[in-house]
């Protein structure tokens, strides 16, 4: 319960920071905090289903976040898939997994935008924007992962049964 609340608080903080600070200060180029936090949470939680649930919820919140002009669910889809992958593979090397997903994510999101007929997604835009966002994400991934790990409550005390209980509840 506490872990879920902490995760929700982290995601909300990332959302607000993303649109209130990161994008306002540098609209052209900047890391995607929401993506990184969601991926870190999924990777640290461990387990495919919790990862996917975290990804979906985070993505949906990202879609609903006020200044938005895209189809609802775009980010929910992207983050659900990536959260699933991160949760599944993130047990041993969370940083590697988070970094990989953070690099893949902008391309995936743009791909879905292109499928939906978004007029802004073209190859040239993708070529110029993807590397920038990916590099920003890569640079910030360790920091976000460290913060998320530091903020999360220790699970040593009640350990695995808590996780399985959560998994059963959400599955």
């Amino acid at each position: 319960m506490v872990r879920n609340l902490v995760a929700a608080a982290l995601i909300v903080a990332a959302l607000v920071l993303q649109v209130g600070l990161v994008n306002r200060v540098s609209p052209r180029i900047g890391p995607d905090l929401v993506l990184l936090v969601v991926l870190s949470l999924a990777a640290l939680r461990g387990g495919a289903v919790p990862g996917a649930v975290i990804g979906f919820c985070g993505g949906l919140a990202y879609d609903l976040l006020p200044p938005s002009d895209h189809a609802l669910g775009q980010w929910a889809l992207v983050m659900c898939v990536l959260g699933y992958l991160a949760g599944r593979a993130g047990g041993q090397l969370p940083l590697l997994v988070v970094a990989l997903c953070a690099v893949v994510a902008p391309g995936l999101a743009s791909g879905i935008g292109a499928l939906l007929g978004d007029p802004g997604v073209t190859w040239s835009v993708l070529r110029s924007a993807w590397p920038k966002v990916a590099v920003c994400n890569l640079l910030l991934a360790p920091v976000v992962l460290w913060v998320v790990r530091a903020v999360q409550p220790r699970r040593r005390a009640r350990g695995s049964e808590f996780v399985t209980g959560y998994g059963r509840g959400t599955a």
């Binding site: 649109v19 209130g20 006020p66 938005s68 902008p106 999101a109 743009s110 924007a129």
Partner: peptide, 16 residues
């Protein structure tokens, strides 16, 4: 007054 901005490349450029 602008309170928030979202700029994802290719997607959208919007402010609140």
């Amino acid at each position: 007054q602008v309170v928030a901005r979202r700029a994802s490349p290719g997607f959208e450029d919007a402010v609140e």
